[in-house]
């Protein structure tokens, strides 16, 4: 087998370990310290924010207007799907103007 094969295999095994690892560590504790609990509750917002923040800074008017529209819909009680569709639709239209 080639080196590429073994690298992918090892990478896959380690990646699976990351996917079960957090749970395996946490589940060893009968009760979690409140700080750990608070940290875990922060994970979704903390990590998912990093997946879009740099792209927002790197963006231009088209991107910012699209995101602002999605935010307005969110704060006026619109559904998740409506936010996403308006944001995406607006972006495609605005990109025709701002490039």
């Amino acid at each position: 087998m080639s080196t590429t094969f073994w690298i992918i295999l090892a990478g896959g095994v380690l990646t699976y370990l990351t996917r079960i690892g957090g749970h395996l560590v946490i589940s060893r504790f009968e009760r979690l310290h409140p700080r750990v609990e608070a940290g875990l509750n922060a994970v979704p917002v903390a990590v998912l924010t990093t997946l879009f923040a740099p792209a927002v800074v790197e963006g231009g008017p088209a991107e910012w207007i699209a995101l602002a529209a999605a935010a307005v819909i969110a704060f006026t009680g619109g559904s998740f799907l409506l936010m996403f569709l308006v944001g995406a639709g607006l972006l495609v239209i605005l990109r025709q103007f701002f490039g």
Binding site: P44, V45, L48, T49, L51, F52, A55, V56, G59, E63, A66, L67, A70, A71, A74, F80, M83, F84, G87, A88, L91
Partner: peptide, 10 residues
Amino acid sequence: TIYFFCIVLT
């Protein structure tokens, strides 16, 4: 980017 932005907002 829009997708994760919307998720964090919700």
